Simulated scan of single mutants.
Amino acid sequence: MLYGAMKLSVGGGLKLAFRPWVEGKEHVPATGPAILASNHLSFSDSFFLPAVLDRKVTFIAKAEYFNSPGLKGRLTAAFFKGVGQLPVDRSGGRGAGEAAVRSGIAVLERGELFGIYPEGTRSPDGRLYRGKPGGLARVALATGAPVIPVAMIDTEKIQPPGKVMPKLMRPGIRIGEPLDFSRYQGMEGDRFILRSVTDEVMYAIMKLSGQEYVDIYATAAKRQIAEAAKAGKAEKTARAGKPGRKDTGTDGR
């Protein structure tokens, strides 16, 4: 009931304000379990995708969104629950990954749609990064559910980092044909199979999105960007603190 109300208010508002376009909606089954594997460009991805679909989509969300204190925290928790988000503590390393896998399996066993971002985090620069095999592939092989590749288009341009007010523009959602990995069912313990399944999904997403593919994890790319920014800042500070050369009025000899 809460989800339905949220979908009408939030989803309806998003569609009215941003008018997102969608291609391939017919690839999402009307009933039964399926995994929606999407690229991840913006915080808003988890809202735009459910807004254009007729069925509920459950995503994994950081537990902090559900545990914050005070009135604001309670309202935030109610909002995320209402739009179909599942809280998972992602600070616990391997244990957090296991919790996410169990949550995904439970959603699919109920015959519902499970949304996941194989990159594990938002792209830092709009490019598509290597998919992490621990979540998507394990859930797919444990349940036999089809994997539907999804490409979010231009959502990162709506509210770039540092911008408070969103830009009113039309994002896009391109949904591909379901991928069947039933031939590997029961082989979720084989890391080579997990890698193969993940790479096949990422290739399908790349074809849909048109993004440049980078064969490293997005988390590693974010570290590199942060380290480069830190080094640049340190160099700038060092240059600012270095005394300038005095003009002696001679040729320097």
Results as ranks from 00 to 15, higher is better:
46 S>A: 10
39 N>P: 04
178 P>E: 08
125 D>S: 12
78 A>S: 03
101 V>L: 06
73 G>I: 08
178 P>T: 05
179 L>R: 07
100 A>K: 04
143 T>H: 03
248 T>C: 10
7 K>T: 02
248 T>I: 02
200 E>C: 06
49 L>Y: 06
49 L>W: 01
135 G>C: 05
83 V>Y: 00
106 A>Y: 15
47 F>K: 00
206 M>E: 15
37 A>M: 03
48 F>N: 13
58 T>L: 10
138 R>P: 11
71 L>F: 06
193 I>C: 01
112 E>M: 03
28 V>E: 02
160 P>I: 10
48 F>T: 11
77 A>G: 12
86 L>K: 10
101 V>K: 04
123 S>M: 13
210 G>A: 08
244 G>L: 09
142 A>V: 02
107 V>M: 06
194 L>E: 01
74 R>F: 10
55 R>V: 13
207 K>N: 05
95 G>W: 05
92 G>E: 13
21 W>E: 08
175 I>E: 05
88 V>Y: 07
80 F>I: 03
94 R>V: 07
61 A>F: 03
42 S>E: 08
14 L>A: 07
79 F>H: 09
248 T>M: 12
102 R>F: 03
13 G>K: 11
238 A>L: 09
186 G>N: 01
26 E>L: 00
87 P>Y: 01
195 R>D: 15
71 L>V: 14
45 D>E: 04
134 G>I: 04
59 F>P: 04
153 I>N: 01
145 A>W: 07
179 L>W: 04
213 Y>F: 13
184 Y>S: 06
18 F>C: 13
200 E>S: 15
74 R>P: 15
4 G>H: 14
102 R>T: 09
96 A>K: 12
210 G>H: 10
222 K>T: 06
8 L>I: 13
65 Y>D: 05
7 K>V: 00
246 K>M: 04
172 G>K: 07
26 E>A: 09
114 F>S: 07
88 V>D: 02
29 P>Q: 05
223 R>F: 09
233 K>G: 09
190 D>I: 00
33 P>H: 04
123 S>H: 14
162 G>N: 07
129 Y>Q: 05
113 L>Y: 00
198 T>L: 02
168 L>R: 13
246 K>V: 06
44 S>G: 09
148 I>N: 02
121 T>C: 10
77 A>K: 14
6 M>S: 03
162 G>W: 02
26 E>D: 07
50 P>K: 10
125 D>K: 06
230 K>E: 11
54 D>I: 00
34 A>E: 10
50 P>Y: 12
245 R>K: 10
173 I>G: 11
78 A>R: 08
